[in-house]
Amino acid sequence: METAEGTRARNRRAAWFTHGWLALGVLAFAFPIWLTLMGSTHDASTIGRGDVPLLPGPHAAENYAQAWGVGGGRYMGVPAGTMLLNSLVMALLIALGKIAISLTSAYAVVFFRFPGRMLAFWLIFITLMLPVEVRIIPTFQVMVSLDMINTMQGLVVPLIASATATLLFRQFFLTIPDEYVEAAKIDGAGPLRFFKDVALPLSVTNIAALFVILFIYGWNQYLWPLLIVNDRSLETVIVGLTKMIGGGDTQNEWNVIMATAVLALLPPVLVVVLMQRWFVKGLTETEK
């Protein structure tokens, strides 16, 4: 069967092509992380010499111990443990706060008829188009006036409203059939009851998916924490990491920096890995 042979050969070629292409993609993503990982296992002088080690070295334990407990770099800064905790609290507060606020505001916009409803929705929608950087100076001014500089609230509150999440929940709520609302009305469930018993349980997968996205969004915040926090005990790991890199006048402790970078990688990775199932479900599945 020559044609069958031809089909098989073509399939093989296609498989090679796709796999080769995928491997290239993986390499592009994974190689920098590999470098970081390897760099964190050598001593400062190895990297200082300009070597880029591709294989693990013997100093992993001491590098990580220093990064976790003492810190390093230009200012001999904050231990990674503290920074990670700060980042974690901030990212969690931002993610949960965003979900709570956007969930309730989307619920209000979809299920209630009140004057100015569409106006409220459009105002939320329009802020989608404004990146944080655009309003950063007035926001900073407001935070100063509210005396929230150098506080966790100051770190979190300006980032806690999310137009994107509101829009997403609104779209989801719109897919909830009117009959559920009507059945609940006949069952005697008020708006809060319906929210707690029907709308919220139905949105669980969406909430989980959003949590992953928003947690990483919060974790990766750089500009705002850099501005609002000078108190180093409140420093987040992303900001702290850049502060460890000097201006060139002294040698950077690249080994400790890379160890800190690896530590900074772990929580988001953990969140993604643990919630992957929910994440995919929330983005693809509509359970009706």
Binding site: Y180, E182, A183, K185, I186, D187, A189, V198, K288
Partner: peptide, 29 residues
């Protein structure tokens, strides 16, 4: 309000809450 009229309704698409068991659906009201 519908709840105060003491009526029960069967909908065209049944409007069963998908996240509740059959028991939960029947017991909800």
């Amino acid at each position: 309000e519908p709840a105060d009229r003491d009526v029960a309704m069967v909908f065209q698409n049944y409007a069963l809450y998908p996240h509740m068991s059959v028991f939960g659906n029947m017991a909800y009201g």
